[in-house]
Simulated assay, not measured.
Amino acid sequence: MTPRAATRSARERLLAAAGELFYESGIAATGVDAVLARAQVAPATMYAHFAGKDGLVAAYLEQRFEVWRQTWDEVLAERTEPVDRLLSLFDALDRYREREGSRRGCGFLAAATELPPDHPGQPWLRADSRLLTDRLRELAVAAGLADPEEATATLLLCYDGALARSAREWTTPELHAGDPVRRARDLATAWLAQRGHAVAH
């Protein structure tokens, strides 16, 4: 165990290991034994903190959601111009990727394809969708967009497309043609400018 890992609690090590493995290999493909081995934690210790693998998955998604929300909050706090605040979605995603090493697409979208409807992790998938939709709508209203619903749907399409493209380029590196998140931001910026909402410089 590294000195840094030794300073973490068993719960923190389990969440860190689960986060890495679930994101790298998928939830279904990652067994509890692999998480225990990476976290260097005994099975009894894991079950003292989580109600089995499903509980660990839910905690992983909760932590991922909170880190993502806090990152977006942080970026928003640095922005004052309304259209720039609307585009902060992409800047927050860029900052999140740099900090967390998330280059394989969206962990929430990946989890949504694996978890059954009654899984305890589902509330965090819904929370992510609500955060994206509700916050973008509020920012679109604040920016004076004539149709906030259309703006929300368009920016979400750019956002989801960037994440899907990131996943595709991860598996097929020869298709790489620049950063998908920055390209998505440029597309969203152009779409807003066409509607008379250019970013102030």
Rank of each mutant, 00 (worst) to 15 (best):
P3Y: 00
A6K: 07
S9I: 04
A10L: 03
A10W: 00
R13I: 11
R13M: 06
A17W: 00
G26W: 01
I27D: 05
I27V: 10
A28H: 03
A29F: 08
T30W: 01
V35R: 00
L36T: 06
A37E: 12
R38Q: 13
R38N: 02
A44L: 14
T45L: 06
Y47R: 09
G55H: 07
L56R: 05
L56E: 06
A58P: 15
L61G: 08
E66V: 14
E66A: 14
E66W: 02
V67E: 14
R69A: 15
Q70R: 09
V75H: 01
L76F: 00
L76H: 00
A77H: 07
T80K: 03
T80G: 08
P82Y: 02
D84G: 08
R85E: 06
L86H: 03
L86D: 02
L87T: 00
S88N: 04
F90D: 01
D91Y: 00
R95C: 07
Y96P: 01
R97E: 04
R97L: 00
R99N: 10
E100T: 07
R103P: 02
R104E: 04
C106E: 01
F108I: 05
L109V: 12
A110T: 11
A111Q: 06
E114N: 09
L115Y: 00
L115A: 07
P116W: 00
P116I: 10
D118H: 08
H119S: 13
G121L: 12
L125F: 07
R126V: 15
D128N: 13
R130E: 15
R130S: 08
D134K: 05
D134T: 02
R135T: 13
R137T: 14
L139W: 06
A140M: 12
V141L: 13
A143E: 04
P148G: 11
A153Q: 15
C158W: 07
C158V: 05
D160P: 10
D160I: 01
G161N: 13
G161L: 11
A162T: 09
A162S: 13
L163R: 10
R165H: 07
S166K: 02
S166Y: 01
S166E: 12
A167N: 07
E169H: 10
W170M: 14
W170V: 12
T171N: 11
T172V: 15
E174I: 07
E174R: 03
L175D: 13
L175T: 12
H176I: 05
A177G: 10
G178K: 02
R182E: 11
T189N: 10
T189C: 11
T189Q: 09
T189F: 13
A190Y: 03
A190P: 03
W191V: 14
L192V: 12
R195M: 05
G196M: 11
A198R: 04
A200V: 14
A200R: 12
